[in-house]
Amino acid sequence: MVNAPAQDMENSVTRSGSAAPAAAAAEPGMSQAAVEISHLHKTYGTLTAVDDVSFTVAEGEIFGILGPNGAGKTTTVECAIGLRTPDSGTVRLMGFDPRTQAAEVHEIVGVQLQSGALPDQLKVREILDMYQSFYRQPADVGELADVLGLTDKMGSFYKTLSGGQRQRLSVALALVGNPKVAVLDEMTTGLDPQARRDAWDLIRGMRDRGVTVVLVTHFMEEAERLCDRVALIDAGRVVALDTPARLAARARGSKVVRFVPSDHFDDSLLTGLPEVTNVRHDGQHVEVDGSGDLVNAVILTLAAAGVTAHDVELVASNLEDAFVKLTGRHSDPEGATS
C-alpha cells in the first residue's frame, strides 16, 4: 500500500483513461498491432520457461512485461524478436514473422538487451557510426546523441562511460535504426534514481515520436508510471493483462480517503453515504473506507456541512499489491537485481 497524494492518483486515472482506446485497438483481429504473440511455448529441457503466452501490443503503446525473476519475461521477448525459436506459437512484429522474415524484423525492431556491453577501446561515435550503417533508414547520429545526452561523450572511449551513459548508449543503439518497435529489457536496472527518471522521460519521448515500446521490467513503479498496459507474467504464464490502474484496483476493491477535518463532525454524516463503508479516527486524521467516487462524495458532503477536509490523501492499492496478490511474491522493491 502506498499513500498516493490525490493529485497523483488523478494523473493515473487520466492515464488509464487515455490507455483505454489503445487497449481496444489491441483486440485480436485488428490490423494495427505492432506485436502479436499467440500461444507461445518454450521449454529448456524439463524447465517450462514460457507456457502459452499470448498478448497483443497496439502501435504507439508503451507495453510492460512485468514479473518476478525467472518468470519467463526475457525468454518471451527473445522469442518475439527472433533471438530464440519458440517450441510452438506464433509471433508477428508489424505483421512480419521473425523466423522467416528476420531481415525485415531486424530493420524495424530496435532491441536493448539485458547486460550487453561493448569494447572498452571504441569511442561512442565509432560505435554509433558502425551500428547506424547497418540500417536502411537510420536515425541521425548527432541528433540521437543529443536527445540521449551523449553529445559531450561522442569522442570518449566506452571504458570511460558511467553506468548511466553506457545504458543511454545502449538505448541509442536500439534506436539508431529508427525502429517502429523498441524492445527494452530491464533498461533501468542498476541506474541511480535520477538516471532512471531520465530514462522514463526518454521512453515517453520515444512513444511521442510514434515508436511502440515493449518494456520488460520487474520494477513496479516503472511499470505503473510508464506503461499503458501491463502483462503480468508468472511461471511462464500471463496471469493478468490490463492497465496498471485497473490491475491495482483489481487487487483491492476498496479505497481509503484520509484527511484532517477543519472541525468536528458526526460520523453518520459520512456513513450514510452509499460510497462509504466505514469511518475511523486516527489521532487528528479521519480515514474513510469505501468505493466509487469516494473522494468527491466525502469532500462535498463535508463542505455542505461547513467542514473542510485538509491534507486529503487517497490511499490506493497499487501495482505492487496486484503483483503480490497474483503471484504470491513480493517484487524487488529496488529493481536492483535481475
Binding site: Q101, A103, E104, E107, S133, Y135, R136, Q137, P138, A139, D140, E143, L144, V147, L175, N178, R209, G210, V211
Partner: peptide
C-alpha cells in the same frame, strides 16, 4: 513520424517488404 531525421535509405522511404530489401544495392 519521427523527430529523428532519417537519411534517405537506398531503398526509398516508402519501400517495405522483402523484395525491395533484396533489391537494395550491395553498396550499403
Amino acid at each position: 513520424m519521427t523527430a529523428l531525421a532519417t537519411r534517405g535509405g537506398p531503398g526509398g522511404s516508402s519501400s517495405r517488404g522483402l523484395v525491395s530489401h533484396l533489391r537494395l544495392p550491395s553498396r550499403r
